[in-house]
Design a protein around this nucleic acid. Structure first.
Length: 489
RNA sequence: GGCGCCAUAGCCAAGUGGUAAGGCAAGGGUCUGCAAAACCCUCAUUCCCCGGUUCGAAUCCGGGUGGCGCCUCCA
């Protein structure tokens, strides 16, 4: 069996390449995880969601995937944050690892196969640094150890920088022990009160980039398939990882480098200096987690995505359509057996469209488009079947429902029960709009009585009353149901 | 200054040589006591501008214009 023709954009070559893994049928992927000094923001969430779908799709295509995503739990920012809260750095990091796990769960992110932490990888980190020192790529200086960029002939091959130009913006800070401006720290001598570990260079802790070199090698080997992260990690983080790993092992670190585009806020990158960072957990109080996920997937992962209320509302409305459809279909066919026989149309054709899009650099936006026809057909079959053969309609609906399940497993969407999702959404809207559910139900009862008496004037008056409160009602064969209208703002 | 990305309808957004996916909005229709939901139809002779290559370009090349990112911590 020939491998599925998945193509992916490789930052190293700046073009799409056919995925040919080191070991046929297997993929090792390393994604740079969060530095746990605070809650993750929605930009982080986008990146992790993108790679979540990459991993899911590779598995869907039959690859045996080893997915590694680390926690950077030893870092300057953690020490700084801990100093501010008065916590021990280790405790603060542990607290935010837990917070991240909660956030990840809300977004339906898969648990990686391995989630290593810097604090648990110190021996491996020290070993790599020692190797680099021994091979002359690194030097010790007053308890610090630096990587000597000038010793690395192909430095900057990922970001395509030119070393002379890089030096222009660079300054050697006073007190810095670096020999050359571009050199970067592999090991930092401990200062009082900082977490530290023993090393051949005295007590200290790892520099920023070395942990990923150590953790990826520990769990995926010196050379592995895919390394991913946000666009802003290309330089210097991934560049430095490459320099460290390849100098130490003399092997190509990763074959494919994937980078996720930014999530913009009001058309500008989120940044602390602009004060426009939105935490994931704050965003989740305003938008359904699955709608956020859908929103992320509605644009190709390498393109910029603008975080806007309108777009989120659209995503949520679209998701409601999907779930309403699934609810109807499930009511119709769940648990039923239909005699074998021909299907209406070609339920399988949507899968082909979906796979074609995903095979092309994980084009989730294109993949989502394939769902439109699938859901329209389900609605057509439930509401106004074009064929009289009820068994055929039922069989076809079941087949389509199965297609949705397959797609769900890849996109991480529609994993909730439709009834639960719809109720959860309505409950949130009820809370936001301050709607009195008891009153709604009383009015609904009055209207039902009026309708039974064919008093349509009264019935419509009640409808108007509810509408003023933002409640929309729908008369269905199964009775009158209601929902909260989308906010007009 | 160096490196790089992007520019597709009112809005969002796929499409990297073969004659413009999908969604939202809008208009029309079917259904409905009326609605809503759902379904159907319509909705870019054209892809920022100017040249070029080609039988053929939104897609390739050159030049503009306009956004944006990285070069310092950053997903």
């Amino acid at each position: 069996m020939s491998p599925p023709p998945i193509r992916l954009f490789n930052t190293m070559s700046m073009q799409k390449e056919l995925l040919e893994t080191l070991v046929p049928g297997k993929v090792g992927i390393y994604v740079c995880g969060p530095t746990v000094y605070s809650y993750v923001h929605i930009g982080n969430a986008r990146t992790f969601t993108s790679f979540d779908v990459v991993v899911r799709y590779l598995r869907y295509r039959g690859y045996e995937v080893t997915y590694v995503r680390n926690y950077t739990d030893v870092d300057d920012k953690i020490i700084k944050a801990a100093h501010e809260t008065g916590e021990a750095p280790v405790a603060l990091a542990a607290r935010f690892v837990e917070a991240f796990r909660e956030d990840a769960q809300a977004l339906h992110l898969l648990e990686p196969d391995v989630s290593p932490r810097v604090s648990q990888t110190i021996p491996e980190i020290v070993a790599i640094i020692q190797k680099l020192v021994d091979k002359g790529y690194a030097y010790e200086s007053q308890g610090d150890v630096y990587f000597s960029v000038s010793r690395d002939a192909d430095y900057a091959k990922l970001s395509k920088r030119n070393l002379e130009e890089l030096c222009v913006g660079e300054r050697v800070q006073p007190g810095d022990q670096k020999r050359e401006p571009l050199d970067f720290a592999l090991w930092k001598a401990a200062k009082p009160g900082e977490p530290s570990w023993d090393s051949p260079w005295g007590k200290g802790r790892p520099g920023w980039h070395i942990e990923c070199s150590a953790m990826s090698e520990k769990y995926l080997g010196a050379s592995f398939d895919i390394h991913g992260g946000g666009l802003d990690l290309i330089f210097p983080h991934h560049e430095n990882e490459i320099a460290q790993s390849e100098s130490a092992t003399d092997q190509r670190m990763a074959k494919y480098w994937m980078h996720c585009g930014f999530l913009d806020l009001e058309g500008a990158k989120m940044s602390k200096s602009l004060g426009n960072v939105v935490r994931l957990r704050d965003a989740l109080t305003r938008v359904d987690p699955e709608a956020l996920r859908f929103f992320f997937l509605s644009t190709h992962y390498r393109h910029p995505l603008n975080f806007a209320d309108k777009a989120l509302a659209d995503a949520e409305a679209r998701l409601e359509y999907f779930y309403e459809t699934l609810r109807k279909v499930d009511e119709r066919v769940a648990g039923k057996d239909f005699a074998a026989g021909p299907l209406h149309g070609e339920p399988g054709r949507f899968r082909a469209e979906f796979e074609t899009a995903m095979d092309d650099d994980f084009n989730s936006a294109g993949a989502l488009a394939a769902l439109s026809g699938l859901f329209a057909l389900m609605n057509e079959l439930t509401d106004k079947p074009p064929v009289k053969d009820k068994a055929m309609v039922g069989r076809t609906l079941q087949a389509l429902r199965e297609e949705v399940r397959r797609v769900s497993s890849v996109l991480g969407l529609f994993e909730d029960s439709p009834a639960e999702w719809l109720l959860r959404r309505r409950d949130r809207a009820v809370r936001e709009r301050g709607i009195d559910v008891a009153q709604v139900e009383r009015l609904l009862g009055e209207r039902a009585a009026a309708r039974a008496a064919k008093n349509f004037a009264e019935s419509d008056r009640v409808r108007g009353l509810l509408k003023e409160q933002g409640v929309e009602i729908m008369d269905t064969p199964g009775g009158t149901v209601w929902k909260v209208a989308p906010a007009s703002t």
